[in-house]
Simulated scan of single mutants.
Amino acid sequence: MKRGTGIALRAVTATVGGYALAAGTAAALSLALPAVQDRAEAVLTATMAALVPCVLAVIGAFAAASAVRAAAWVAGLAAATWGLAGALGTLTGGGP
């Protein structure tokens, strides 16, 4: 893979993948946290906590050995968080 293509793939992985990972994390935590907090506080806490995986996805996208490996990791983690959000939505009666 050419250098410019690798950098472009890493940038797309960082932005799109980071957003997908943050949104999935926020959805999963928003469904899990009302067990211990009020619903509004749970959504606020989940939204703030979801920024951490987004930043880690950006760091991981540019720190990985290859751009394809970075994309695979971020996509896999995003899919896992959305799967967890879907499972929690089914269990709690809400939806992601």
Results as ranks from 00 to 15, higher is better:
residue 20 A to P: 00
residue 29 L to H: 07
residue 33 L to Q: 07
residue 49 A to V: 09
residue 22 A to T: 14
residue 94 G to R: 14
residue 48 M to H: 06
residue 15 T to S: 15
residue 51 L to C: 09
residue 48 M to Q: 06
residue 22 A to Q: 12
residue 77 L to I: 09
residue 75 A to E: 06
residue 95 G to E: 09
residue 2 K to V: 02
residue 25 T to P: 05
residue 10 R to P: 09
residue 34 P to W: 06
residue 46 A to H: 07
residue 62 F to C: 00
residue 82 W to N: 09
residue 14 A to F: 03
residue 89 G to Q: 05
residue 58 V to M: 08
residue 76 G to Y: 08
residue 30 S to Y: 07
residue 74 V to H: 13
residue 2 K to C: 01
residue 81 T to L: 15
residue 50 A to F: 07
residue 65 A to S: 13
residue 39 R to H: 06
residue 61 A to Q: 04
residue 86 G to M: 03
residue 45 T to H: 01
residue 19 Y to C: 12
residue 17 G to K: 10
residue 92 T to R: 14
residue 15 T to I: 14
residue 93 G to P: 11
residue 88 L to S: 10
residue 45 T to Q: 02
residue 36 V to H: 06
residue 89 G to M: 01
residue 25 T to A: 14
residue 35 A to C: 00
residue 15 T to D: 10
residue 9 L to D: 07
residue 55 V to A: 14
residue 18 G to M: 04
residue 38 D to S: 07
residue 10 R to A: 06
residue 17 G to N: 07
residue 30 S to H: 05
residue 5 T to A: 14
residue 27 A to C: 03
residue 53 P to G: 12
residue 46 A to T: 07
residue 35 A to Q: 08
residue 30 S to G: 15
residue 66 S to E: 05
residue 56 L to P: 02
residue 13 T to W: 02
residue 88 L to N: 10
residue 54 C to H: 06
residue 56 L to K: 08
residue 15 T to E: 14
residue 48 M to E: 11
residue 43 V to T: 15
residue 76 G to E: 09
residue 93 G to E: 12
residue 43 V to E: 12
residue 84 L to D: 10
residue 26 A to L: 08
residue 31 L to P: 01
residue 62 F to R: 00
residue 57 A to K: 03
residue 36 V to R: 01
residue 3 R to I: 00
residue 66 S to Y: 04
residue 38 D to Q: 00
residue 21 L to Q: 06
residue 62 F to M: 00
residue 71 A to R: 10
residue 21 L to S: 09
residue 35 A to M: 09
residue 11 A to C: 07
residue 41 E to Y: 03
residue 15 T to K: 02
residue 37 Q to T: 12
residue 70 A to P: 04
residue 36 V to P: 00
residue 78 A to N: 08
residue 95 G to H: 13
residue 67 A to R: 08
residue 56 L to C: 07
residue 5 T to K: 10
residue 79 A to V: 03
residue 87 A to Y: 12
residue 11 A to M: 08
residue 13 T to M: 12
residue 79 A to S: 01
residue 71 A to M: 11
residue 74 V to E: 08
residue 83 G to I: 10
residue 22 A to C: 12
residue 31 L to G: 12
residue 49 A to F: 03
residue 93 G to R: 14
residue 78 A to L: 13
residue 33 L to V: 11
residue 72 A to K: 12
residue 53 P to L: 03
residue 71 A to S: 11
residue 46 A to N: 13
residue 2 K to I: 01
residue 10 R to I: 05
residue 73 W to F: 11
residue 29 L to F: 07
residue 79 A to Y: 00
residue 19 Y to G: 13
residue 60 G to R: 06
residue 75 A to I: 02
residue 49 A to E: 02
residue 42 A to W: 13
residue 36 V to Y: 03
residue 11 A to R: 11
residue 32 A to V: 11
residue 8 A to R: 10
residue 77 L to S: 12
